[in-house]
Nucleic acid binder design. Structure first.
Lengths: 143, 143
DNA sequence: CTTGAAACTTAGAACTATTCTAACTCCCCT
DNA sequence: AGGGGAGTTAGAATAGTTCTAAGTTTCAAG
């Protein structure tokens, strides 16, 4: 089953970082896998509280930090808005719709990433590349 | 003189946005032109307070907002760290040194920008592209 | 099984970057 | 001259996140 496969990922990856797989971490991870909207910590909190009313916002932050730390989740920053979280591990950029606030994943082809890296001066190496587009999606009104 | 040319830019650009050129806005803009370290609002405040002790942090934020609004300065966001400000108006990316925190401007060739835009799905258009590298600069120790 | 230690969760306080508020000042137009 | 709007100021308020301290769970070893 897909869920089990992901759970194995979870336990394994957490263990690799010296962390435990707890029910709360499972909940948070499963929620991120289910809702690919790049939710904020607060949104994850509200959503999980519906079924687990005892969970605390601090735990959501702790879980997200653990998931980011073990590499299963990536934080997404847009300007100074609340951090959003994304379980998409492929190298990708984000498009932020200025009208709706919606975020879209944009795949980054490996050759393009290589080209981007070539922009760095000699001696500089990048561990991560963050690429964000901000703009508009065509609507019926302006199409 | 360069300073005068920049001052004309300032008055003109502010006027274009219906804003006035005030001494405080001049100070903030001149400081950004002089210190190309991408300072934070707080750093600008500390630096300007040395010569203008009556200035307020709210004014720094107001001035920076005015300068951003009229297009003379660009805000730079790195993760959720305090916003930094940059008077470099050419299209460029940023390299953030994970060791020193130093930020380096990286010029973006127009053809590469065009290639990046091609990644967007049909109907999507980007007003701005933010590209940030995070990594390390070679030192004598690991060179 | 117990026991002890370390990891984890929780609620709420604390922190920090930024924005808001309300009073005051300055500048421009008539 | 004086009225109005834009700007500045200090301090209060806000919001996202992190910290703290207390309680709980997990797990290994005896």
């Amino acid at each position: 089953m897909i869920a089990d496969a992901h759970s194995m990922d979870l336990s394994q990856k957490l263990a690799d970082s010296g962390l435990r797989a707890t029910p709360q971490r499972e909940l948070v991870y499963q929620l991120l896998l289910a809702e690919r909207n790049h939710p904020t910590a607060e949104e994850v909190f509200q959503r999980i509280k519906a079924s687990s009313p005892h969970i605390s916002l601090a735990t959501i932050y702790n879980c997200l930090e653990a998931l980011v730390g073990c590499g299963l989740v990536k934080p997404v920053h847009f300007e100074r808005a609340p951090t959003r979280y994304c379980p998409n591990l492929t190298e990708h950029a984000h498009f932020h719709d200025a009208d709706t606030g919606r975020i879209l994943d944009i795949d980054l082809p490996a050759p393009l990433i290589a080209e981007l890296r070539k922009l760095l001066p000699p001696g500089y190496s990048a561990d991560s590349i963050e690429l964000t587009f901000r703009g508009h999606a065509a609507t019926k009104a302006n199409a």
